[in-house]
């Protein structure tokens, strides 16, 4: 086991999208308890640096496996489909049109300071994402259909970005409420 060991092996978890998050958390704390730089404050420079590298790797692993989109991307990467390295991702027109509609609705609600409309969008998106992640789990864990899973993951990358934007818009409205 070294710094290049894959994260599933590192945390001794099965290489699956449907992940036991509590097991991940427990393993994470166990390993971090051993390698964290706080355990090596009295050691020499090289030991301290090595501890920092290990702890950083363990942190990165936990973060990657914890978030479903990152986990999906990582599973695909291990299967030889590196979505991060892709330069041009051509999406089908219907999806793009749907995206534009989502965005327009979000922008309209934001400009109109319409908190409720934003909340409704958020809820709809939440439902949509939940269904897509269920489908993605089947593609990754049951069918092992990497191309189809990669395609669905690309869509999810768009949608998660949209969700972030709606979150930000909601936050901005909330902050305005203070003053």
């Amino acid at each position: 086991m070294d710094l290049t060991t894959d994260f599933f092996t590192l945390f001794q978890l099965p290489r699956l999208f449907r992940l036991d998050l509590s097991a991940l958390e427990a393993r994470y704390l166990e390993i971090q308890g051993e390698v964290h730089p706080d355990r090596f404050v009295q050691a020499d420079e090289r030991a301290r640096r090595q501890a920092a590298q290990w702890a950083a790797r363990v942190n990165e692993g936990c973060l990657t496996l914890k978030k479903p989109l990152e986990r999906a991307k990582y599973l695909l990467f291990l299967a030889g489909h590196d979505l991060e390295a892709e330069r041009n991702t051509v999406m089908e027109p219907a999806f793009l049109i749907e995206q534009m509609e989502w965005r327009e609705a979000a922008e309209e609600a934001r400009n109109g300071r319409d908190h409720h409309a934003l909340e409704r969008l958020h809820h709809r998106l939440h439902q949509d994402l939940a269904g897509r992640y269920r489908a993605l789990a089947a593609l990754l864990d049951d069918q092992r259909d990497w191309p189809a899973a990669a395609h669905e993951t690309r869509r999810l990358m768009f949608l998660e970005k949209l969700r972030l934007e709606i979150d930000d818009a909601l936050a901005a409205l909330e902050d305005e409420g203070i003053y």
Binding site: L16, L21, L69, L129, R134, D141, D167
Partner: peptide, 20 residues
Amino acid sequence: IAERAGEERREEKTNEGSAA
């Protein structure tokens, strides 16, 4: 753990993906 992860946790683990 991998096998158990199949049926019983399918629902909740995929839902977790969108719990914001």
